[in-house]
Design a binder for these strands. Structure first.
Lengths: 216, 216
DNA sequence: CCCGGTATACTTGTCTAACAATCTGGAGCC
DNA sequence: GGCTCCAGATTGTTAGACAAGTATACCGGG
């Protein structure tokens, strides 16, 4: 292999690079990603390329049928809705538990602070801190399995964002205001109100993203 | 390969057989599962055995460090608690949504009917229908991602059951009564009461299993 | 002109063989 | 007794090969 540092192994490195390429939008959803192409692209043997591809298929980043080339999975409107409904389920549960102990997740507040620095800028720049805010709420539970389940959803959202390339985003002001309201309600111990704000927050994002994905 | 029918491919078949062996308790958690052993056991080449092992590592059934043999993952009390807390989060969300539309999941009722046929028998026999009851509630949402997240938890529970070999189970009567109460409350639209029963139901199972896992 | 069947090229699935890298465990030495 | 080092075992990676399956292009018939 010629590029990338070898941290754990060739397969993992290639898988990581491929994932970044898929999420970054460098791999269009419809072009086939053959084992030979991956092997040549990263200068590894075909079995290694195969293993990396299969790892990403297992994670849901790529998809492939038997004897067919892998592709970056294209997310349709139904998939977006499913992702967001599942997000809402997990985040609502997290908010309820956090509100019960009135524990304000610090990492979420920090992500909000970063969003605030982009108040005048483009919505694209806050995709990352926004996802970090939501992840921070879930991670505050300290549950390995809950966090893992949520992380895979976030990865899908990120991939989806790359697919629509910034179309259908919400204004930075609205996002920030709702985030802070959620944190306030958690600190106040008002779980139901916080969940209601979250439902609206995610619901609007869901609608926008679903529409953007459905558009040409 | 010499045994097993070839449905999709050698790797998947081996992975499936290995998973069954792990869940069924035929593979003790501490004995190393080497690639060579798997290859010999199922009469496949070592790369195929390797791929099957890595697939299960990705699913969390096996674990392995770099250059070390894989092992069946041993679940400790903390893992059991994490699994059950995550279960409660997902199931609670499912129950709330089902209660909102007062839709009684038929598949769950069917699983309960099967539990009822074992009223006098051993608690071990109802592990499967019990897990099916809970899965049916989640599956009733019709959400691919929520179901997938929940299924991986159920697999861990199943593996854990094999590990403790029937110790620490709850009486069949209690389980059945609570299941039916949950279904009633869902049908009545009383989400909070249903969630409360579920929390107690899962909480008790969590305590029992955690204790059984911690015991020698 | 369109339709269907065949042939070909491409891709994946699997295996054999080999070597490098790394870890484990014990023998030997201080 | 503790430490070092070596040999065996295991995994990591590669190369090459062949089989099997799929898609596509092509060609003949209707």
């Amino acid at each position: 292999m010629v590029e990338g540092i070898r941290v754990t192994g060739v397969v993992d490195a290639v898988a990581e690079a491929l994932r970044a390429a898929a999420i970054g939008g460098e791999l269009e959803p419809d072009r086939p990603v053959t084992e030979a192409w991956v092997a040549a692209r990263f200068a590894v043997a075909r079995p290694s390329a195969k293993a990396a591809i299969e790892k990403l298929v297992g994670e849901g980043v790529l998809e492939r049928a038997a004897h067919r080339s892998a592709r970056v999975r294209r997310l349709d409107a139904d998939a977006v809705r499913d992702v967001y409904r599942t997000r809402r389920r997990i985040e609502s549960a997290a908010i309820r538990e956090l509100a019960a102990t009135r524990s304000r997740p610090d990492a979420a507040a920090e992500a909000d602070a970063e969003i605030a620095t982009h108040l005048g800028g483009s919505s694209v720049d806050i995709v990352d801190p926004d996802l970090r805010f939501h992840s921070a709420i879930v991670d505050a539970l300290g549950s390995e399995r809950t966090s893992r389940a949520y992380r895979s959803l976030i990865e899908e959202v990120r991939q989806c964002m790359a697919q629509v390339q910034g179309r259908g985003l919400i204004s930075v002001d609205t996002i920030l205001a709702e985030h802070e309201r959620i944190l306030e309600l958690i600190a106040a111990g008002d779980a139901e109100a916080a969940v209601a704000v979250l439902a609206e927050h995610l619901g609007r994002a869901e609608e926008r993203l679903a529409a953007a994905v459905a558009a040409p």
